[in-house]
Each structure stands twice: as structure tokens, then as C-alpha cells.
Design a binder for these strands. Structure first.
Lengths: 236, 236
DNA sequence: CGGTACGTTGAGTCATATCAACCATAGTGG
DNA sequence: CCACTATGGTTGATATGACTCAACGTACCG
């Protein structure tokens, strides 16, 4: 399907389907965004922005999945989070007025709206409810980052992998055949967990032997959620 | 010195000395805070709030140092950050409207102002500049958290310890004798780095042998900053 | 003086990283 | 059409960083 064949989604409708981030806008504010935003499409592997670059706006995901990651030593990626429909990325850099501290790469072909920085800033200034909304978002993400820090620092790779599988299940749900609706390479999995690719492979096949998961190439089916919870120590 | 002997600091003056967080307030806004806030003093070891508790306000540090940490498996602490004069803590929970995801404990005797949640919320709503300011703060912290995640996931304990020493140097400066102005137990150091106490001890004494640091009980003097930078791989 | 918290060191163990080889698949170009 | 290459997945062997456990020293405190 070509770019011009796809109708540009309107924020108010997209908000209803995908999330609530723009639900508190006035008619005029929504109109401004709809007018100023730029609709873009990307395919798996495409890069939306790179760590260290100055960013002129943020992206609101309409469809698809994007991974947000930092590049560490030897170019090894550390995946910070995934963004899915209804979520926004790059807002951190815009609001802190710093260069991007992460890169963003497409996992699943996606459609996004690019919204210029000024719009976000002026929105925050003119609409207190919205300001609070986005503050809430940032603070929530901060809380998740703190948990992740503690996990990586204290849990074993095995525990973390089990936990990540559960998180993915929670964030992306399952398809008709009960497979996780997100498809990652073993290396990507390793880059979330913070370990080596080989370790993920070994542990996954252990989980498979233990009937905790079913593997089919990149597709993963969670067979025993309770078992994974036990391994992951989610309930301390 | 007893509590009543100490004059309650006024925000406008404290802001000038310690930081800029309240510098954009109108006269009335500052007056409201000065009127509503509650001045409190704590000593080393005191707990300001605990993970999991609902918080009714945030703290602005006037003097002293506070550690913010999460409690992980087996009660092991993971230190998320330190708060020093001019900085605020607990604002995350207030703004995200979640229970505290961390605990806060006094490292160096401190004087703080406790400011009720409603004040912060209404300030964000009524003063867009302030809202942006605090958004910036949250987003900046988020960026730091992301870096920390990548570090813990990818660097060795040795690298991380060197990096933490440099960060402490940067955040807390040195006294007349060039000792770091923050005094931590080995265990606390371990709980920042995310390792075992014994590992910190061994590495520190290695650093000492290599003339990178000088140790005097809990007091640490950085002798060779460049050397530590090299070890820590701060410049990738 | 016993108690408690902290610091230090040594020895042993284990989880995980690293290195290397190999296979499967798909895309590319001559 | 086949050789070529790149990418991803898997497995085994090996190395080692870091944790754990245990013992002991030190200092401070009531």
C-alpha cells in the first residue's frame, strides 16, 4: 500500500481508539495539531531518530511497534522500552531540551504522526490539564525506570528473562494462536534483559523444556504464566 | 541545636542559594508556599517516607543529603539517587498519583520543607512556566535513569564503581582536604553500583593500590580523575 | 564489658560471558 | 541457476567476574 492511499488519522479519533493522551484537548487545540502534524510511515529497521541528535518534535504512534534504545559499549544496544499505538516517543528530549538520549527503530511497520516541538510546548503552557497529563506520563515512566534499575542490579538473567516475557505478554497481548503479538530476535530479547544472545537462547530452551513456553522461530507462546511469575520473583 | 532555634528558610532566599526550582514563582505563589509548607529536621538514618506508602506532599531539601532507594530481593537496597540542597524528592509519586516507588532515608542530617501535594498540583496548573520547569526536571531524571540502566546492564562492576566515584565527585564536590563531601558506608556504595559489599571493598583497595584514590575510613579522595575516567569508559 | 555495626580478607562456587563452530534461510549478483 | 554473503539461531567448551560464606578485626556505644 502506498503512502497516499492511507488516510491520515485524526487525533481525536485515534485517541479514542489507541489511548487517552489527547483526550483533554479543546476543539481548537486538536485542530492545531491535526493541521501541524506530519503523517509518516516506516518499515521494520527504519530509524526515526538517533541518540545524540537534536530533535524538532515528537512522534505519536498510530500503528506498529518501535523500540527505544541506548547504544552502549561496542555498539551493544540496551532497549529501554517499546512504544505501541497511542504512545509517544521523543517527548523527553523535547521537554528537557536536551539532545536525544536514545535512538528509535521500527520493530513492526508503523504509521506515526510527527508533531513539532513548539506545539507540545505551547500545549503544556496553555492547557494545564494536559500539562499534568504529560507530567503524569513522565513520572510514571520514571517509576518504571527505577524498577528496571533495581531488577537489573539485583536479579539474575534467568529471573529477568522470565519477567520480561511476562511484561511483553502484558504490553502486547496474544494473537489467535496465543503467540505473543510482538516478534523479536534473540538478540533483541537479550538487549532488553541485558545479557548475551546465547544466554537468552539457552534459557529460552530451558523454559521450553520446562513447558513454560512454546517456541516457534521468533514466535513465543506463554504456556505457564504462574511458573514464570515464580521464576521472576515479581512478587518479591 | 534545637528545632526552634533554627529559622525556617524562606523559599525565595533558599532558591537563590540552593537552586532555581522556585525562581519563577509570583510573589503570591511564593507566599502561599511559605505559608503552607512545614519545616522539618531529620538526622542520619531517619526515614522520610517508605516505598508503597501514599504520599501527601513532597520535600524540598534545604540542607543535608538524602538517599532515595528501592528495596529489592532479600531487602537489599538499590540506591536510585541522592538528593541535596535545592532538590526535591517524592514529587514523582505526587504527580503520577501513585504510591511511592522508593523510600527516602537521611544520609547527612538535614533540614527540609514539606509541601502538600495540592500546592504542587495547583502550581503546575496555574503557572505554565513552573509546569515546564518541573517537566524538564522529570524528563532530565528520566534520561539519567536510562543511562544508568544501560550502564548496569553493560558495564562491569569495576567500571561502574569508577563511574560512580566520578559522579559523586561531580555532585558533591570536595572539602578542604580534597575528600568527597559525601560519606557512605561500603554497603551504600555497593547499593549504588549494584554489587556486593565485598566487591566494593576489594575494588576500592585495588584503586588505592593503583593510586587512583586515597581511603580514610569512609572518606574518599580522588587522586587520579583521568585514570578513573579511563576505567569507567565514560566516553564510550 | 558485651553488643552491634561496619570493614576486611580468603577460599570456593556458580552464573554468565566469551569464543568458536556449525546450520538454516534468504537475498544478491554474475 | 548457483555461488556468495549476510543474518540469525543453536550448541559446546572454556574462562572468569562476581557472589557467597565464613572468619576475624575494629570501633564505637550504652
Amino acid at each position: 500500500m502506498k503512502q497516499h492511499d492511507i488516510p491520515v488519522p485524526f487525533c481525536d479519533q485515534c485517541s479514542m481508539e489507541n489511548g487517552a493522551l489527547f483526550k483533554n484537548l479543546t476543539r481548537e487545540e486538536a485542530d492545531i495539531i491535526n493541521f501541524e502534524k506530519e503523517f509518516r510511515q516506516f518499515r521494520r529497521g527504519d530509524i526515526l531518530y538517533k541518540e545524540g541528535s537534536r530533535i524538532s518534535g515528537f512522534y505519536c504512534i498510530h500503528s506498529g511497534i518501535i523500540k527505544v534504545f541506548k547504544t552502549g559499549l561496542d555498539g551493544k544496544e540496551q532497549i529501554i522500552r517499546f512504544a505501541k499505538p497511542g504512545e509517544i516517543i521523543a517527548y523527553r528530549s523535547v521537554l528537557s531540551n536536551e539532545v536525544a538520549c536514545t535512538s528509535a527503530k521500527v520493530i513492526d511497520d508503523c504509521q506515526v504522526c510527527f508533531i513539532p516541538s513548539e506545539i507540545l510546548i505551547s500545549l503544556v503552557k496553555s492547557n494545564p490539564t494536559y500539562a499534568l497529563e504529560i507530567l503524569k506520563l513522565a513520572c510514571h515512566e520514571l517509576g518504571e525506570a527505577n524498577s528496571f534499575i533495581t531488577d537489573i542490579a539485583q536479579k539474575t538473567v534467568r529471573e529477568r528473562l522470565a519477567e520480561i516475557l511476562l511484561l511483553l505478554l502484558n504490553d502486547f497481548c496474544i494473537d489467535e494462536q496465543n503467540y505473543l503479538k510482538i516478534s523479536l530476535t534473540r538478540e533483541e530479547l537479550a538487549n532488553i534483559v541485558g545479557t548475551a544472545t546465547e544466554s537468552v537462547i539457552r534459557l529460552l530452551s530451558e523454559f521450553k523444556t520446562d513447558k513454560l513456553v512454546e517456541l516457534n522461530g521468533r514466535k513465543i507462546k506463554i504456556l505457564n504464566q504462574k511458573g514464570l511469575e515464580k521464576i521472576s520473583n515479581v512478587f518479591n
